[in-house]
Nucleic acid binder design. Structure first.
Lengths: 105, 105
DNA sequence: TTTGAATGTAACCTTGCGGGTACGTACCCG
DNA sequence: CGGGTACGTACCCGCAAGGTTACATTCAAA
């Protein structure tokens, strides 16, 4: 679970998950797209693999990685507990979103 | 954003956010409920404050903390990008949830 | 079977997170 | 004005996250 979250940490830098969300990619392609070197990416991918967030299939020497979105359902369910809270204040919320977005960028 | 996520990290241990989700609490009460000492809780609360996740109001010497669920909307929006993905495989998903839950405990 | 490409692993190093102790500070009450 | 209470902050420290270099491994093609 912890793993998922690092993907959320930085919005400007492209993450593995965000890349895989758009299209599958080999380990090398991911390494190119990321700011870190290949071995680091490999270890990162291992964590994602063990966490069940990505699937690998082998194509000759290359390993093609695919996103498995199912585990994110867990995050969604976790959020559900809080969604109740803010749904009670929807009016105040909309103003808050607008304000927050402006302040954040 | 990073802050939100540590709350997700461990499901067994009660977190500040989960406590505040149920009811407001003073810093001391939070410290009692948590496995860490008061100074640690104070620093944790500062992060949450600066992240805009909690509000404080002062009552004599005590500081009463309240949850501000709005920022979690951001996480919800982030998840939305992935929700598209898994909504296309809802049937396989439900089986996955059941399997994942059993394996996880 | 050798060579090169693609990837994973091992060993190592550095940094930052998060915890604890000790101290400072506001606030009520006598 | 003391003294107790409820917090926050400053400082220090340990450790694990995550990065790099160097090496091992697997596979295709020559």
């Amino acid at each position: 679970m912890d793993v998922v979250l690092h993907a959320l940490a930085d919005e400007s830098r492209r993450t593995v998950l965000e890349i895989l969300r758009d299209h599958q990619a080999s380990a090398g392609e991911l390494a190119e797209a990321l700011p870190i070197a290949r071995p680091g990416v490999s270890r990162h991918l291992r964590v994602l693999r063990e966490a069940g967030l990505v699937e690998v299939r082998q194509d000759a020497q290359r390993r093609i990685y695919t996103l498995r979105p199912e585990p994110l359902v867990e995050v969604d369910e976790w959020l559900g507990e809080y969604r109740r809270l803010w749904e009670n204040r929807l009016d105040a919320l909309h103003a808050e979103i607008a304000r927050g977005k402006k302040a954040r960028r």
